[in-house]
């Protein structure tokens, strides 16, 4: 029997665990050194595998597995029934409010400053600058302004004042709103609805309502009172 056939039969014997051909293959193993080597490999593992199978330690993990199952089951139930901790939720809501109001306040201050700057630096075409800082020989005062320019400047002053007042009002409201947030987090064990959360959130909302109205009025005032073509906005 050639080496390929010998190897094939040997492998089939191992795969099927059918050792009927064992003595026949053992005789054929002397055919060549290659046959002999394949047969020796088989014998090495035939000797080593039973010894290896004996080295498996005994274990009893029944209690450990059931304890772990109970623990995982308990933690799942706990997660399922755990109250939603309002700290992150309400904290993020307050942060959103604060960020929104801060943006509005900064925007309004920026508008105020911008309009003030326009008032000094910009000149309306066809009119004299309010003050150039350069001495002239003219006997006529340089601050003389045309009536439309004065009314425009008055509008800008009003818008700036409204913006500034709005910013101050926002800051004051923020201070009050922050003081309404409860310092202590609710107890995590409770499964009751978070009444305290709804109360103080409602308080903040009520507190914020005037500032919302003010922002709305101020924006309407600014948008409708300042001619678009005369500003850089």
């Amino acid at each position: 029997m050639n080496l390929v056939d010998f190897q094939s039969r040997l492998e089939t014997m191992i795969e099927t665990r059918n050792f009927d051909q064992r003595s026949r293959l053992e005789q054929l193993a002397t055919s060549s050194p290659e046959h002999q080597r394949l047969w020796e490999d088989f014998l090495i593992l035939e000797t080593a595998v039973p010894a290896w199978q004996q080295t498996l330690p005994e274990i009893d993990l029944v209690d450990e597995v059931l304890a772990q199952l109970a623990a995982s089951h308990f933690s799942e139930r706990e997660e399922m029934h755990a109250p939603r901790t309002p700290v992150a939720h309400t904290g993020s809501r307050v942060r959103q409010w604060a960020a929104s109001l801060l943006v509005v306040a900064v925007l309004l201050i920026a508008i105020t400053v911008k309009f003030s700057g326009n008032q000094v630096e910009k000149t309306v075409p066809g009119t004299m600058p309010a003050f150039t800082g350069v001495a002239t020989d003219s006997p006529v005062p340089a601050v003389a302004q045309s009536p439309p320019q004065r009314s425009f400047n008055q509008l800008l002053k009003n818008a700036g004042a409204a913006s500034w007042g709005l910013a101050q009002s926002t800051a004051g409201t923020m201070t009050e709103a922050v003081s309404l947030v409860p310092v202590a987090a609710p107890q995590p064990e409770t499964t009751e609805p978070l009444t305290r959360e709804s109360n103080w959130v409602d308080d903040i909302n009520m507190e914020m309502q005037p500032i919302k109205d003010q922002i709305s009025h101020a924006w309407n005032f600014i948008i409708h009172s300042v001619p678009e073509e005369s500003t850089n906005i």
Binding site: T47, A51, W52, Q54, T55
Partner: peptide
């Protein structure tokens, strides 16, 4: 020298 452990190391 244990053959089983030798085989396990080889495995």
């Amino acid at each position: 020298q244990d053959l089983g452990e030798e085989l396990q190391n080889a495995i």
